[in-house]
Simulated scan of single mutants.
Amino acid sequence: MSKVAVVTGGTRGIGEAISMALKDVGFVVAANYAGNDERAKAFAERTGIKAFKWDVGDFEACKAGLRRVEDELGIVDIVVNNAGITRDGMIHKLELDQWHEVINTNLNSMYYMTKPVIDEMRARGHGRIINISSINGQKGQMGQTNYSAAKAGVIGFTKALAQETARKGVTVNCICPGYIDTDMVAAVPEKVLESIVAGIPVGRLGQAEEIGAMVAFLASEKAAFITGAVMTVNGGQYMANG
């Protein structure tokens, strides 16, 4: 029986590539999304992957959403915490709601999405939690104190949970993408984007499929000895182990 993988923010950008990569290697995928019904419907029709709507920043919604996935597709074996938002601004201009929105969606969601499934994973002796952080969670980024703090927290969450679950057969790993060719990056002003690419040693933006391939590997049995790892996928822009 195929294992079930849930991908948050799984119908567009990096999340869409992750959903497709997991489907391609045989997982039954549930792609979570937050609000764009039209885009999610088009994604589901194009890919054959079922889309489920709920807010990852709401604990009760996560519990209900995961129950629905299990009722319709089966027990969840892999959770990919990919959903994230930005609300950029220098901290002297950053509003309180901009801080809380980013922390809640990007960091609190780690708990909200993991807590409902972790007991069952531990009981079965198998599971995969794969968290998507960011290069800016490793090095920081001006104008992103909220985002950088949340994504750094994702790294800490990953390392702590990995220690808690290692002997139960549940691996927990983190991927830190650099600048990836998505709609979010495409919205960056052209001159700014040119300067970003100039600082990437491989000389280009990353592709969402490259993140998807890393997730598919970490979800596989070949990665059973890897836990608590922080994978940097950034073209050499920032070289670090965590």
Rank of each mutant, 00 (worst) to 15 (best):
E194I: 04
C176R: 02
A198Q: 15
E190I: 10
V154I: 15
V185Y: 02
Q207L: 15
P189E: 09
M142C: 09
D181S: 00
A240S: 13
Q207E: 14
K139F: 03
K139Y: 05
A162D: 04
A229N: 12
I132L: 11
I180H: 01
T158P: 03
Y179Q: 01
Q207K: 14
K151R: 14
V170W: 07
A186M: 03
F157I: 07
Y238K: 06
A224L: 02
S195V: 14
T227G: 08
K139M: 10
V202Q: 14
T182L: 00
A213C: 11
A166V: 11
L205T: 00
A186E: 02
A198K: 15
A229D: 13
S148T: 10
S148Y: 07
P189R: 08
L161I: 12
A219I: 06
A160N: 11
G169C: 05
A186L: 04
Q237Y: 11
G143K: 06
V230E: 10
G199D: 13
N131V: 15
F217E: 09
G178E: 00
N146W: 14
V202F: 15
T182V: 03
A213P: 07
A162G: 09
E190M: 06
G203Q: 14
Y179H: 02
Y147R: 10
N173G: 12
A149V: 13
A198W: 15
A152V: 03
A213V: 14
E194C: 01
G169W: 00
V172Y: 10
M142N: 10
Y238M: 05
C174Q: 05
V172D: 02
A187N: 02
P177D: 05
S195W: 13
S148F: 10
A223V: 07
V185W: 00
I226T: 10
P201N: 10
K151H: 14
M142D: 06
M231R: 08
I175D: 12
F225G: 00
I155M: 12
G212D: 10
A198T: 15
I196S: 07
K151N: 13
R128T: 01
S220E: 09
A219W: 05
I132T: 08
I226N: 01
I180P: 00
V215E: 11
V188G: 02
E194T: 07
V188N: 01
G228R: 09
S195A: 13
M214R: 14
Q144S: 10
I130A: 08
Y179R: 00
N234V: 04
G143P: 06
D181G: 00
D181H: 01
T158V: 09
Y179T: 00
E164A: 09
I130Y: 08
I129D: 11
A240M: 08
K139W: 07
S148W: 11
E221M: 02
C176G: 03
A149Y: 12
V197C: 03
M231Q: 13
Q141R: 15
M142F: 13
Y147Q: 05
V192K: 05
G143E: 07
P201S: 11
E190Q: 11
M184T: 02
C176P: 02
G203H: 14
G235C: 04
I130L: 08
G235V: 09
V154F: 13
A208K: 04
M184V: 08
K139H: 05
G169R: 02
S133A: 15
E194R: 08
A149L: 11
Q141S: 09
K168F: 15
V154E: 07
E209Y: 06
F225L: 03
V170H: 06
A198M: 15
K191W: 12
Y179F: 04
I135N: 03
P201I: 15
A160K: 08
S148D: 11
